[in-house]
Design a protein around this nucleic acid. Structure first.
Lengths: 192, 192
DNA sequence: TACATATTGGAGCGTTCACTCCAGATCTGC
DNA sequence: GCAGATCTGGAGTGAACGCTCCAATATGTA
């Protein structure tokens, strides 16, 4: 939507403001006015660049997820451990944004079909990446088994992530490492 | 708050209406007016019986969770499998209410400190019940190990529940059974 | 029956807030 | 430096909605 340089700069100012405010107050806690005031622009400028308040929020979440991607180019060089680490990093280091992500993906995705479909799509892509990494590490692993492993691992990570955001004292990294070790082990030797 | 018979009946009508509407439209999607219209009462009657719209929603979620409890009396007779089954039943059979539960616990709990604290408390209670059941089944299991097992298992179940609500084709029961088998097995033989 | 207490409906209050509109300023390619 | 597109602020719109208030009525109790 932005074509001129000033427009692109304004866009960045708005995204920074949105990131700051939404991190602190959550999606519902932030008004459009707060964002435009913080960015030093009028509402008209905002709507010249974004379709809605939500669109700006989606954008900052997207950027935050992309920032921790261990293989942004999609070259297939990431290991299962890389992916788990990235997930943990996102949940712990990008805490406030991770909160927003879950608020949107779970809180809204379960109610709004459009957001739900979007969430499901990105979930499926993530499962596939986890499964691919698992098969690279253990070529004897069948596609179906790898999918189940990936689905289970991701489910566990998501649950741990939620707990970690609810409980500041929760040590997600340790739990995630144990989870990865167990999940992988149970594939090598299905009944220990 | 209700003392007279008519009040108790009104309370039930309001809860039924809330259950119906909120199941269909989500918490934010339902207005107080919709609830009172559906229940055939005025706003005054509603507020005579409930502190807020939210209070009524919490109540129906509480009742739905209680309804699947395999050991409501807390006699310590439930097995790990019972608890996993109850969780799966809640997520699949009570689908619409489970949606509301997650919407509140995750979507709101991560933003509103009061709801967050409440969610964390019930999470801790649930971890304890899972851990107790695990130790009854395997008395050699240490308390710390049981807690880790419970925490991990619950995290996985939560993640699977979210996926199951997002993806109608997802077979949660099968994944949960596998998860239980693997989690338990990995404790008996930590490194397969 | 008389009295205290509970219940009732629903008008309306007070507020919030995303978004529209548009005239004028600014930009960029030619 | 001109034309046409883009960008700008911010007043204003319009709708939403949780909750209060209270006089009238119903209920239970002694």
């Amino acid at each position: 939507m932005a074509r001129y340089r000033v427009g692109l700069e304004t866009r960045e100012r708005i995204l920074s403001a949105t990131r700051r405010l939404v991190s602190e107050l959550g999606v519902e806690g932030v008004t459009l006015k707060a964002i435009t005031d913080e960015a030093g622009v009028g509402a008209g400028s905002f709507y010249n660049l974004f379709d809605s308040k939500e669109a700006a929020v989606f954008e900052i979440v997207r950027e935050a997820i992309e920032a921790v991607d261990p293989d942004p180019a999609g070259e297939g060089t990431d290991t299962l451990e890389d992916l788990v680490d990235a997930f943990v990093t996102f949940m712990t280091d990008a805490g406030p944004i991770a909160r927003i992500y879950l608020q949107l993906a779970v809180g809204r995705g379960l109610v709004d079909p459009v957001i739900g479909a979007r969430t499901l799509r990105s979930h499926r892509r993530r499962v596939e990446r986890f499964a691919d990494a698992a098969r690279r590490q253990d070529p004897t692993l069948g596609r179906a088994d790898a999918d189940v492993l990936a689905e289970t691992l991701l489910a566990g990570l998501t649950g741990l992530g939620i707990t970690s955001l609810l409980d500041p004292g929760f040590h997600m990294a340790a739990h995630a490492q144990r989870l990865l070790a167990r999940t992988a082990a149970s594939v090598d030797a299905p009944r220990g």
